[in-house]
């Protein structure tokens, strides 16, 4: 298999072959993470520039470590200073190219920003979240976790629950999971489910118990701070009553259902504390897998379509 992409922006047009290939490489990367000295110096001499706005999110740390384990230089750039609007992003790509940057990892509040940057830079661009559009690596880490637990994706019943409207993770997961042959349903209040999302091949449920019935996987989404909802939702209190993942809800799913969450969790609102820490809840695995898939992507992109080291194949 050849991986010929320059950038990794979206899971919309990624084939199931490509996804499985990335996951396979990621599984090998997990061995690197498990070592005492975590170093596979395959990105020696390469530079990774991270653009994450002003946030020091867990996601950014995951990228920093992934690049570091592979021996790359990591430089942080504050988006707030330079890339305030999309116009600046075009120039920013050129500037980073001129300085010899190899990778740009971008999180940006505007949907479509990562694509624009990828089109204007020679460096490889990884989308770490653009607006409410996509967060493809977050989806890959979910996929790796599912694959480890369930062995595959075909006909797997996956229920995505929560604020689907504002979730880029949900969109990436819907694209990937439907490509991989899973049966996906989305659950949430009608005001937080995007119109016509069923046209992407998913089923819509407003009743959580119906939505998770015989589910293999439940993906919980993160709620935005309450004040951002305006009139879309009455309160987190009402959300909790209708959509909180607790043992009662899980009793409707399959006994070996797994629960995942992109973090950080609003405990007791999105997921009951009683679930967190049980064998059904895989949020810890997700964190490790996040580093692994990001290492895999950096490596695959760095090869520019050339064959990769046999150890990873």
């Amino acid at each position: 298999m050849k991986f010929t992409r320059k950038d990794f922006i979206s899971l919309k047009d990624v084939s199931s072959g490509e996804i499985n290939y990335i996951l396979k490489v990621a599984e090998t990367m997990k061995h690197v993470i498990a070592q005492k000295n975590k170093r596979a110096a395959i990105l020696n001499g390469k530079s990774v520039i991270t653009l994450f706005g002003n946030t020091l999110s867990r996601n950014k740390i995951s990228y920093d470590l992934a690049a570091g384990y592979l021996g790359a230089n990591v430089v942080e750039m504050k988006l707030g200073d330079e890339g305030g609007d999309l116009g600046n992003l075009i120039d920013l790509g050129r500037i980073i190219d001129q300085m010899g940057g190899d990778f740009i990892i971008i999180r940006h509040p505007m949907s479509g920003s990562a694509k624009l940057l990828a089109e204007s830079a020679l460096a490889c661009v990884i989308n770490a979240g653009d607006g409410i559009n996509e967060n493809p690596t977050q989806s890959l880490l979910d996929l790796l976790t599912i694959k480890e637990q369930k062995g595959g994706f075909k006909n797997l019943k996956v229920s995505i629950i929560g604020d689907v409207m504002h979730s880029r993770v949900a969109r990436s997961n819907i694209w990937a999971l439907t490509t991989l042959g899973a049966r996906v349903s989305v659950i949430g209040p009608p005001t937080l489910i995007p119109d016509f999302i069923d046209s992407l091949g998913v089923k819509i449920f407003y009743n959580a118990y119906e939505g998770v019935e015989s589910a293999d996987v439940i993906l919980s989404l993160k709620l935005q701070p309450e004040r951002q909802y305006g009139s879309l939702m009455p309160s987190t209190n009402e959300y909790r009553n209708l959509f909180k993942i607790d043992s009662e809800m899980l009793s409707y799913a399959k006994p070996d259902v797994i629960v995942m969450h992109p973090g950080p969790i609003n405990r007791g609102i999105e997921i009951s504390s009683q679930i967190i820490g049980t064998k059904n809840c895989l949020i810890d695995d997700q964190i490790t897998n996040g580093v692994a898939v990001r290492m895999a992507l950096l490596y695959l992109l760095s090869m520019g379509g050339n064959p990769i080291n046999e150890a990873f194949n």
């Binding site: 305006g230 009139s231 009455p234 309160s235 009402e238 009553n241 209708l242």
Partner: peptide
């Protein structure tokens, strides 16, 4: 007229 009330409850 601004904040939806807890319809479900």
């Amino acid at each position: 007229g601004t904040q939806m009330s807890e319809v479900g409850q």
